[in-house]
Computed example of a mutant assay.
Amino acid sequence: MVLRSDSELPEDEHLVPVPVAVERATGWRPTPSTAWRWAKKGARGHRLKTVDLGGRPASCVRWVNEFIQNTTEARDRC
C-alpha cells in the first residue's frame, strides 16, 4: 500500500474502491472518470484522500465525507 496523503488510515473504516466509498457515503455512485479525477486532481483545491491498492485508488467513507465537506466549504467561500 502506498499512502497518497499525509493522513493515517482510519482504524474503524474499510478501504474500498473510490466509487464504492462515494456510494456508501452519499447514496449515488460517480462515474469512474469522476472518481479518478477527485483522487488525482481534486476539486476546488481539495483532493480525495486515497491509498493505492493494486494500482487503483481506494478510499473510505470518512475520507469521502471530509472531501465533500471541504469542497462544499470552498464553494461557499466564493
Rank of each mutant, 00 (worst) to 15 (best):
T34S: 11
R47S: 04
V22M: 09
E13S: 13
H46W: 11
A74D: 10
S7V: 15
E11P: 05
P32E: 13
S5D: 14
T31Y: 08
G42M: 03
N70E: 13
G42E: 02
A58I: 02
A43L: 13
T71V: 15
P57L: 07
I68G: 00
H46D: 07
R37K: 15
A39G: 10
T50P: 00
D76C: 03
E11L: 14
T26P: 00
E23Q: 15
N70H: 13
E73Q: 12
V18I: 13
D76S: 06
D76M: 08
L3Q: 12
P32I: 02
R56G: 05
R77Y: 09
M1C: 10
K41P: 02
A74I: 10
A58N: 13
C78F: 01
S33L: 12
R62C: 03
E13T: 08
L15F: 05
A25Y: 08
P57A: 13
P30Y: 04
G27M: 08
D6Q: 11
L48I: 07
R4F: 12
P19A: 10
R56W: 05
A35E: 02
V51Y: 06
R29D: 01
H46N: 12
E13W: 03
R75G: 12
V64D: 03
N65V: 03
S5V: 11
A43Q: 06
P10I: 01
H14C: 14
A74E: 14
W36T: 15
V16A: 09
R75W: 15
G42F: 04
L53P: 00
V51G: 02
G27V: 08
S59F: 05
E11V: 12
E73R: 14
A58Y: 15
S5C: 15
N65I: 00
R24H: 09
F67D: 01
A25H: 07
P19Q: 09
Q69N: 13
R77C: 09
A35P: 00
K40I: 01
A25I: 11
G45V: 06
R62I: 02
M1A: 12
W36C: 13
E66P: 03
D52K: 04
T72S: 06
N70R: 12
A58W: 14
G45E: 01
W38A: 09
V61A: 02
V16W: 01
W63V: 00
L15V: 04
V64W: 01
D52P: 00
S7T: 14
E73D: 12
K49W: 00
T71Q: 03
L53Q: 07
R29E: 04
E66S: 09
S7E: 14
V18H: 06
G54C: 09
R44D: 05
A58T: 07
R77N: 10
L9E: 10
S7P: 01
G27E: 04
D52R: 08
T71R: 05
G55S: 11
G27F: 05
R47M: 05
K41N: 12
H14V: 15
S33P: 01
D6Y: 07
F67Q: 02
K49E: 05
W63H: 01
M1H: 09
D12F: 06
A74R: 13
W28K: 07
V61W: 01
D76Y: 03
D76N: 09
E11W: 04
A43N: 06
D6C: 10
L48E: 00
A35L: 03
W38M: 11
W28S: 09
K41F: 06
S5P: 03
T26R: 07
R44I: 03
D12V: 06
